[in-house]
Design a protein around this nucleic acid. Structure first.
Length: 428
DNA sequence: TCTGGGGTCCTAGGACCC
DNA sequence: TCTGGGGTCCTAGGACCC
């Protein structure tokens, strides 16, 4: 049996750990730059605060309802997540960390009588309750637990666990026929793997509820929709199509992008921002010991304004590399080409779209290779940032960070050409 | 004035070859 | 010049997830 353990409104719950006075009160957490709402606790949802809505649109509502608002703190959330995952290990024979706030657990055999479905279901429910109580007791994070024979059923169970108060945060789907009534009332779009588009196509075919989809012929579904949806139908019937994915696979692409707090119209700040993203992407690249062969650079004005301008440029690198300076160089060049003046840029980013692993064979094959000087410099950079916090060591191309006064550099006419790949270390 | 930041997989269609 | 089938590879776009 699989269990899906899902932290309840995770970011909000993390904030509450340090603000126990806010327990039972409505709170929301905002995205980067406080752009929009990314997490709401149960009380905030009850007050009709919508998800992923622009902050400015609901600011008044939030103030009127006295809803506490937090800027996001991803380092903190990562830390709490690691503690939750660590604790969950004790309850599983195997485990997959699915996202920052979710994990699939393969449950141990509970040694129960297979012929007695209701006893069976109760045993799993009790087990789920123990998980929930333990995580709350040890870490003060509320979780929901869904249990089922497949990942899709476990997901569905966790949805039911969150919806119904009677579940007390835990739902075990053991004997499918008993769930006909409940499944008939749940719309298909609540199923893992079914989004807006599939839901409306299914609706056009008069398939509305989970129970209806469960009773469809998988092969028909495959022909009419896709193999994925066919697998979903199988999984709903308790036939596993997906196992635990234990190993974290190396990323096939790495994206680093941000919306700006304030719109940018000038070229240089845009290039500094791009340099910043290029640097982050390279850092991620090096942690998986890989090299980039192609990057994609994009800049965008706001989608919400007229005359939306969102060009992108894909660049094949002359040789595979993970040297921040090289990627910065090409990324800046791309921005220079894409840039048009008199526009208000709202967002930019760098994506490393083609990645190769840095195996010895690859390096032999792919000459010329990075110099050892480059390797050493990147290692020093990463080590400093690991030990002293990210952003401690960087390149001048990324712009002068924090409160640094580097007027002499910045005002020099040759600043952009001569010192761009100069490494800098910030002294705190 | 202010509107997230990541990812994966599948499929259809075009280019090209025999 | 037109007609035909079978196959692979690549890419863009669509759909989904958190």
């Amino acid at each position: 049996m699989f269990a899906l353990v899902d932290c309840d409104s995770f970011f909000a719950s993390c904030e509450q750990i340090f603000r126990p006075d806010l327990r039972g009160k409505p709170i929301v957490v905002l995205s980067n730059n406080d752009g929009c709402i990314v997490a709401r606790n149960r009380q905030a949802k009850a007050l009709q605060v919508p998800d992923l809505v622009a902050y400015f649109k609901v600011k008044q509502l939030l103030e009127k309802q006295q809803i506490e608002v937090f800027s996001s703190n991803y380092e903190l959330y990562g830390d709490i997540s690691a503690r939750v995952m660590d604790r969950l290990q004790d309850f599983a024979t195997d485990m997959e960390i699915y996202s920052i706030d979710e994990a699939f657990l393969l449950l141990p055999d509970l040694n129960i009588d297979d012929t007695n479905a209701s006893q069976n279901s109760n045993a799993y429910w009790q087990y789920g309750r123990t998980i929930k109580k333990t995580i709350w007791k040890d870490i003060r994070v509320p979780v929901s637990v869904g249990i089922g024979a497949t990942k899709t059923l476990a997901k569905l169970a966790s949805h039911i666990a969150k919806q119904s108060l009677r579940c007390q945060g835990v739902c075990a789907i053991v004997n499918l026929p008993r769930w006909q009534k409940v499944f008939s009332r749940i719309p298909v779009k609540k199923i893992w793997g079914i989004g807006r588009k599939y839901a409306s196509r299914l609706q056009a075919d008069h398939i509305y509820s989970v129970w209806q989809l469960l009773n469809c012929n998988p092969k028909t579904i495959q022909r009419r929709y896709s193999v994925n949806l066919e697998r979903t139908v199988e999984e709903l019937n308790g036939i596993p199509c997906y196992g635990l994915e234990k190993e974290i696979p190396d990323k096939q692409q790495i994206i680093s992008s941000r919306s700006f707090g304030k719109k940018i119209t000038e070229l240089e700040p845009l290039q500094q921002a791009i340099s910043q993203y290029a640097s982050r992407a390279c850092q991620k690249l090096r942690t998986q010991n890989a090299l980039a062969t192609t990057i994609n650079v994009f800049i965008q004005t706001s989608r919400f304004e007229e005359d939306y301008y969102a060009p992108a440029l894909s660049i094949k690198l002359p040789c595979p590399t993970n040297d921040t300076r090289t990627i910065i160089h090409f990324a800046r060049q791309a921005v220079w080409q894409l840039y048009k003046p008199h526009r208000r840029y709202a967002k930019a980013g760098v994506a490393i779209t083609e990645i190769i692993s840095r195996t010895p064979q690859q390096l032999d094959f792919l000459a010329p290779v990075q110099s050892s000087h480059s390797e050493n410099l990147m290692q020093v950079l990463d080590t400093i940032n690991q030990r002293s916090g990210s952003g401690t060591a960087f390149f001048l191309a990324q712009g002068i960070q924090q409160k640094w006064k580097m007027n002499r550099f910045m005002k020099s006419p040759s600043y952009t050409t001569r010192w761009l790949d100069l490494p800098c270390i910030m002294i705190r």
